[in-house]
């Protein structure tokens, strides 16, 4: 197990370097000027050159990347061009906000997705299967920003039950765990949970159907196990894959959703990324992408480890 663990962690290093290099190159070849947010439309060439020098954009790209990487390794992701605030603080604050709704969305998505998936798989071909499959397909197909808007119209504008946006009445800095604040999480979390719910449901349905066709199931029944006992074995066999899928989905959710967080004005990583892209704020963009990529990589490692613990066959591969 230790060798397996060490291998998984070692794989992280080249991936992390590759991701940071790729992010750096990607944001530099995108159209637009990185100083858009601080340069006026009528800036003279001299002013442009001066600001480029002050912000270090006059240096060769490899030098810029090297300097950025050195600082990033020390936890300093630089300063946002647009706001003048440290990128690391901005990113961690946003990650914290996204975690709030991502975890809630994961729980909702995993529970509902597993439920619909098991029901559909266990009763394959029945009307229950068809109903559960329709829900799963809708979850994957419905544009989530559209769903978010519809929910805002229904639950905020028409019924007035839930707030339409924001991260609490005083902003995320004054967050409290009471209904007044938690009510702000509900609509974005539900909207966010719809896609993972659909994906988990479809995965689990296929898994359950496959497991039920395996030879050990009739053997279990022959041993006298009742439906519930068989069901427990099916769950145990389906769990590693379902967990792996959900782990990946949590990774996606941690990246926030630019659209969902914009619709709900939720100050998370998606909202931050959207701002960084539109303002061509390179340090903020690079820092956010790097942190999110590291989250994703770490989550994958964690999922691999959990899979290894649950299924010894994985460790032997």
């Amino acid at each position: 197990m230790l060798t397996y663990l060490a291998k998984r962690i070692l794989y992280v290093l080249p991936v992390a370097f590759g991701v940071s290099l790729f992010c750096f190159l990607l944001v530099h070849i995108a159209p637009g000027d990185p100083l858009t947010s601080v340069l006026p439309p009528d800036a003279s060439q001299a002013m442009q050159d001066e600001l480029r020098r002050i912000y270090g954009f006059d240096r060769p790209l490899p030098v810029q990347f090297g300097l950025w990487l050195m600082k990033a390794l020390q936890g300093d992701l630089g300063t946002s061009i647009a706001t003048g605030r440290p990128v690391a603080a901005e990113v961690w604050r946003a990650v914290g906000n996204t975690l709030l709704i991502a975890i809630l969305a994961t729980i909702i998505g995993f529970l509902l997705g597993s439920f619909f998936g098991f029901v559909a798989g266990y009763f394959r071909g029945s009307w229950l299967d068809k109903m559960a499959s329709i829900v799963a397909v809708l979850g994957v197909s419905v544009p989530h920003y559209w769903l978010g808007m519809v929910m805002v119209i229904v639950f905020s504008v028409q019924l007035g039950w839930l707030p339409p946006g924001g991260a609490g009445p005083g902003g995320s800095a004054a967050w409290k765990w009471d209904w007044e604040h938690v009510s702000y999480m509900i609509l974005p979390a539900i909207t966010m949970s719809v896609i993972p719910m659909g994906i988990v449901a479809r995965t689990v349905r296929a898994l359950v159907a496959d497991i039920l066709n395996q030879e050990f199931v009739p053997a279990l029944r022959a041993k006298g196990l009742m439906d519930f006992g068989v069901f427990k074995h099916v769950v145990k066999n389906a769990a590693p894959t379902a967990l792996a899928v959900m782990g990946l989905q949590l990774g996606y959710l941690l990246g926030g959703s630019i659209l969902i967080e914009t619709v709900f004005s939720w100050p998370g990583t998606g909202f931050l990324l959207g701002n960084a892209i539109f303002q061509r704020d390179l340090p903020l963009l690079q820092g956010t992408i790097l942190v999110l990529a590291m989250f994703f990589v770490t989550l994958n490692v964690l999922v691999d480890i959990v899979q290894g613990l649950l299924d010894p066959r994985v460790r032997r591969r």
Binding site: I153, G160, V263
Partner: peptide, 18 residues
């Protein structure tokens, strides 16, 4: 002052008295 860049989100915020 609240930043609400999305036009529909702004409209919803007004209509729901936020």
């Amino acid at each position: 002052l609240l930043p609400l860049p999305e036009a529909n989100a702004r409209t919803a915020a007004l209509l729901s008295n936020q």
